[in-house]
Design a protein around this nucleic acid. Structure first.
Length: 455
RNA sequence: GGCCCUAUCGUCUAUCGGUCAGGACAUGAGCUUUUCAAGCUCAGAAGCAGGGUUCGACUCCCUGUAGGGUCACCA
């Protein structure tokens, strides 16, 4: 497990200065997966040292996001609650000459006094589990500022102190932190902290291959939730962005649940290059997870996605709702699709008599409507002969197909389907009939008969 | 611009010197068929360029090119 006998401790350290986005979600996931894979500990640390920019609602979005994904942390704390700790380290640093209080030129918005680290100005080399050896010449950094005052530590100092205090063994974070690493190593050495293992993740990219950002329409994790993606899919998708379970004995598995991931996840299978966020793949993964959802969950999701307007329609009832679930599930990729279908009026016919144009009732190959004209009476009779109790999709289909016999199927089935749904595109007539029930099917078919006669 | 990182189908990726370069998404075609959806089958699609090293490079090294990241008294 990479670290000998030492228990693995990872952490996710988001700052509540913006919504919890995909990149943060994935970093959280990876830290969680690695810790759990190794039987270790995962810590959540809220980096809110910038008091002006930190906001409660952003912090909420972090907690919500983690919870939604089904992840959990073993410990959690805020940097804003730990000012004394940083202060102690600062004092020690100054005391032994590793840092000093620096007088600054008075400029607008700047302190006249800050605390700087005394930079030994050497080349710092470190090993990255994903990228190999990396080295930086830190002399360019100069004596950088580590705190605005004794009570106002800056990012790098707080990070290093907390990682040390929490006994973090593995720092797994985005590639955009590579250039922060030498600075943090310098501070770690100054406070006498051991060097953790670093693993810098490839970035999640927008379609133009630049870092995914708000500018590129990057969304908060919560927005995917609102669109009706299920957390299982999101976790699955995010895991596959930069990580691959495949190896020498690849088995081509693409669909994973969290516990599979915990089992299979490891740092050595993380890629180096940035991964473009591809929503089509997310859609597919979501669809796959939809199929694996329990009946209760599915019911709950779909009920929430249906506009309440539908509840008021004459045919609305729980039984009928349960019956349309499989049909809906088959036709959507995410739950907001249901809302859209409903808005487009594609769902109403399940709960009320449809309106439609008589001229569409006749199948294109049934010239003059001769076939359906001849058969319509028998069709209705056939439906009547199916007993109420056996009014299932299969039975209806068998009966009607038997009736159709040598006749042209389309000429019979199209009018039936169109008459039942009022839509050019819809599920097949047998399911519709089974859902709306015998009585209503008959009613709608009578209407079809009438209209055909008039025609 | 300095520093750092990266480079296999359109996208996510497998390959840890010898493969017909594999899989998935997407795409196209076909099957099924009463429409749609779903499903099934098949197809097209890749090693950035140039040098090395080697019997042999996608794989190792160098250079170039391209892309990205980062350069705060933000995190």
């Amino acid at each position: 497990m990479g670290n000998g006998t030492k228990k693995v401790v990872t952490r996710m350290a988001p700052s509540p200065t913006g919504f919890f986005h995909l990149g943060s979600a994935r970093t959280t996931l990876f830290n969680f997966l690695y810790a759990k894979h190794c039987g270790g500990t995962f810590i959540l640390r809220v980096e809110d040292t910038d008091r002006e920019r930190s906001r409660k609602e952003y912090e909420e979005s972090i907690f919500d996001g983690i919870l939604w994904m089904g992840l959990s942390y073993d410990e959690c704390y805020r940097q804003s609650e730990r000012t004394d700790i940083y202060k102690n380290y600062l004092a020690k640093l100054i005391e032994n000459g590793k840092a000093y209080i620096s007088k600054e030129k008075a400029e607008e918005g700047r302190r006249s006094e800050v605390i700087r680290l005394k930079n030994p100005r050497q080349v710092v080399s470190f090993h990255d589990e994903i990228r190999g050896d990396i080295s930086f010449d830190t002399s360019e950094l100069g004596d950088f500022v580590i705190a605005k005052s004794m009570d106002e530590p800056l990012y790098h100092l707080a990070v290093v102190v907390d990682d040390f205090e929490s006994g973090i063994t593995h720092i797994i974070r985005g590639e955009d932190h590579i250039s922060n690493t030498p600075r943090q190593i310098l501070i770690a050495e100054a406070i006498g902290a051991p060097r953790p293992i670093y693993a810098h993740l490839p970035l999640i990219l927008a379609s133009d291959r630049s870092k995914l950002s708000k500018r590129h329409g990057a969304l908060a994790l919560s927005e995917y939730r609102e669109m009706g993606y299920v957390p299982e899919a999101m976790v699955n998708f995010l895991a596959l962005l930069g990580w691959s379970p495949q190896g020498k004995n690849a088995d081509d598995q693409e669909i994973f649940f969290l516990d599979d991931l915990v089992k299979k996840f490891d740092l050595d299978k993380i890629g180096k290059s940035g991964a473009v966020f591809n929503i089509e793949k997310l859609d597919w993964i979501n669809k796959e997870h939809l199929k694996k959802l329990s009946a209760e969950k599915l019911e709950d999701y779909i009920l929430k996605a249906l506009p309440s307007r539908l509840y008021g329609l004459p045919g609305w009832n729980k039984e009928r709702f349960l019956k349309i679930i499989p049909i809906l599930t088959e036709r959507i990729v995410k739950f907001s699709d249901i809302t859209e279908m409903s808005l487009a009026g594609e769902l109403d016919f399940f709960f009320k008599t449809p309106e439609y144009e008589t001229k569409n009732l006749i199948w294109k190959k049934d010239i003059g409507g001769e076939v359906i004209g001849e058969a319509s009476g028998g069709l209705v009779e056939t439906i009547k002969n199916i007993s109420e109790s056996s009014f299932t999709r299969e039975n209806i289909k068998d009966a009607i197909m038997a009736f159709v016999g040598e006749r042209d199927r389309g000429s019979i089935l199209w009018p039936m389907r169109y008459g039942l749904s009022g839509l050019i595109k819809s599920p097949d007539p047998f399911v519709i009939a089974s859902i709306i029930g015998k009585e209503e099917t008959l009613q709608r078919m009578e209407t079809v008969l009438k209209r055909l006669k008039k025609n």
